[in-house]
């Protein structure tokens, strides 16, 4: 059990990684987060503290990525396996069946909550900014090309996604 400085109940004894359970996790974060990125962020935070710049662990907006067989996966914000109360989603899948995007947003104010992408590369900074600042789903879809991080000459789908979005959601 650790506090926001990753310190255990014993002074000057800290814990990070898969074993660290947060007493007061940051908003929208779980008490235990066993992924590569949190391990690294905790390590770098504790390094600051060790170097006498006492630093709070503030992981910010959740993100993760993986590769399933040959399909890359990225996620920013919180996307559950099922929609929660008050959430809505927009889903697009490429004909190839190897690319898709799932955007979860608030039913009421249409603010973006999270995104899952397969087979597409999205810019971390752009989605983090959108989620932090509660950008509306309409804006996210309209400006989706600003988040595109695919290699040059990769087939683009923003136009198609925009058309489908306007047809489905008014």
């Amino acid at each position: 059990m650790v506090d926001e400085f990753l310190q255990t109940n014993i002074k000057d004894v800290y814990a990070i990684g898969d074993c660290a359970q947060h007493k007061n996790p940051a908003p929208n974060r779980k008490t235990i987060e066993q992924v590569w990125y949190t391990g690294r962020m905790q390590g770098e935070t504790i390094a600051q503290t060790i170097c006498e710049r006492k630093t709070k662990y503030q992981p910010g907006i959740w993100f993760n990525s993986a590769k399933f067989f040959d399909i890359e996966y990225q996620t920013y914000g919180n996307v559950g396996n099922e929609l929660k109360e008050g959430e809505e989603q927009f889903y697009w899948e490429d004909k190839s069946g190897r690319k898709c995007i799932k955007l979860v947003y608030d039913k009421m104010d249409k603010a973006i909550i999270g995104v899952n992408v397969f087979g597409l590369r999205m810019k971390h900074e752009v989605f983090e900014d959108w989620i932090k600042n509660k950008a509306r789903i309409h804006q996210v879809i309209r400006d989706l090309r600003n988040a595109n991080f695919d290699p040059e000459f990769t087939k683009k789908h923003e136009k198609e996604i925009n058309e489908i979005f306007s047809a489905e959601i008014v």
Binding site: R40, E44, K56, Y57, F63, R121, M122, H124, P151, E152
Partner: peptide, 28 residues
Amino acid sequence: CPRGVLKLENKAEKGRYNEPILLGNDGV
């Protein structure tokens, strides 16, 4: 890259030599 981290880009010269970003805390 298995995580889609790298991209070759031609963009405005300004800010090309950027400061390294601390990735340890609070996202980017």
